[in-house]
Simulated scan of single mutants.
Amino acid sequence: MHTKEMLEICFKQNLNGAQIDKCITSIAGNSLSIEIPLVPIQINNPQELLIMMKNADQIHILVDGGVFHFNAIYNFNSKFPASRVYYAKAKELTTVARLQAYLQKNEINLLPITDKLFGESIEAQNYSMRFNEWEIDRKNKNLIFTQLLDGRLKNTAVEKGIWLSTNNHCLICNTETNTISTTTIVSKSGLIIGMQLCNRHALESQERKNLINFLAENYGIPPIFVADAEITNHNRAALVMTANMLKEELNCKLEKICTEEYTITAKRESGCTIILRQTALNNYAYIIKDPSGKDIARIDSANDHEVAYGPDHLHINLSKSKSIKKNKMSVESSFTYGYAPLDINIIKEMVIYAEQNYTT
C-alpha cells in the first residue's frame, strides 16, 4: 500500500490530521531513503489541506520555480527521522488567491518561507545521521517480523508484507511490548500485515472477526483492504479448493477424500503420494510418501519440536539413509498457515525433493 492510498482511506474515515499522520508514518518507513530528508505527500483539495494544517507542527507557503506550495509539516521525532510534508500546489495567481482566502476564512494564516529556511525547518542537514540511527534501530526491533516475512515469502503464496512500525510499543495503547500480531489477506496471492500489540489488546483482537476490524474499532485506523473478511476456517469449501490445487498445480490424481477430518490423498505420476490433512488451522499435516509408501517429508502443527517460529515445522527428510547429509535431517520452522492452497510453495518443494531423491 502506498501513502497516497492510505491518505485517501483516512480522509474517507474522517480522521483528523494527527491521526492521519500517524497512519502515514506507520507505513512510510517501508519506502524511506537516506537521499530524501522528508516524506512529501500531495493533497488533492482545499478541504483536505485544511484538515492537515489544523494539527500541523508548521504551516507556510514556499515558492519554488514559480509554483506556490501550501505546506503542512509534521516534524520528525525519535520514532521517525523524516518530517512529513502535506502540500497543495498552485501556479496561477487566481488559484493561489482563492486557496489562501479559503484557509484564512478558516483561521489559517500562512507566511512565506525561503528554500533555505524550509531546509532548516526540517533539519535536512542532520537527516542522514538520523536516518542511519533509525534504520539500525528499526532493523533490530523489526527482526522478528522480517524473518517471518522472509519465511512466508519463500514457503507460501504470500507476495508482500506491511509492517506497521511502532518501535516496540502497542499500536493501541503505546505500552511497551515485544510481541507481534499478524493477519494475512488472500485473493490470488497473499499480503501479510504485522503490528505490535500488548498482551491485553492481542487477546481482545482475537475476539473480533479479524485484526483489521479490531484496529478500526480501537485506534481510529480505517478498515484497510477488506474489513468484512472473515478468518479462514477449514470447511467443505476449503476442501474443494485444496482438491483443485492438487489437480491443477501439482497434476495429481485424487485417490481419497475424508470430509470428517478434511483430508485428501492424491497420487503423482511419479508414484509419490501426497496426503493433506487440514482438520483445523492449528491441527494439520502435509505428508509426502515415496512410491513404496515410506514417509519422505512432512509439515505438521504438533508442538513437539523447538523451532524459532513454531509450533508449525518442517521435516524435509524423514529417511534414515546415510547418503543424505546430516543437516537435511534437521527440523525447521515451516512458516506455513495450515491452509494448503496458501502453503503451495513449500508443498511443491517437498514433492520435488521426494521425486528427485526417491523415485527412479
Rank of each mutant, 00 (worst) to 15 (best):
L7M: 14
Q19C: 03
G29C: 09
G29N: 04
S31E: 15
E35W: 13
I43G: 13
I43T: 15
N55C: 11
A56L: 06
L62R: 12
G65W: 14
H69M: 06
I73V: 10
P81S: 12
P81V: 10
P81A: 14
R84C: 09
K89W: 03
K91W: 02
L99N: 10
N106C: 13
T114E: 05
G119H: 08
G119V: 00
E120N: 07
N132G: 05
E133F: 06
W134H: 02
D137C: 03
K139D: 13
K139E: 12
L143S: 13
I144L: 14
T146D: 10
L148E: 07
L149C: 01
G151Y: 05
L153E: 00
E159N: 08
E159I: 00
K160I: 00
I162D: 13
C170A: 06
N174R: 15
T175Y: 11
N178D: 14
N199M: 09
R200K: 15
S205F: 02
Q206N: 03
I212E: 02
N213K: 07
L215D: 07
P222G: 05
V226P: 07
A229M: 14
H234W: 11
V240G: 00
E248M: 01
E249C: 04
L250W: 06
N251M: 14
E255L: 11
I257Q: 03
T263A: 12
A266K: 09
S270A: 09
S270P: 09
T273N: 05
L276S: 07
N283I: 04
A285D: 13
I288V: 04
P291N: 10
D304S: 05
D304Y: 00
H305W: 01
E306Y: 15
D312W: 02
H313Q: 04
K320T: 11
I324E: 03
K325S: 10
K326I: 08
K348H: 02
Y358K: 12
Y358D: 08
T360K: 10
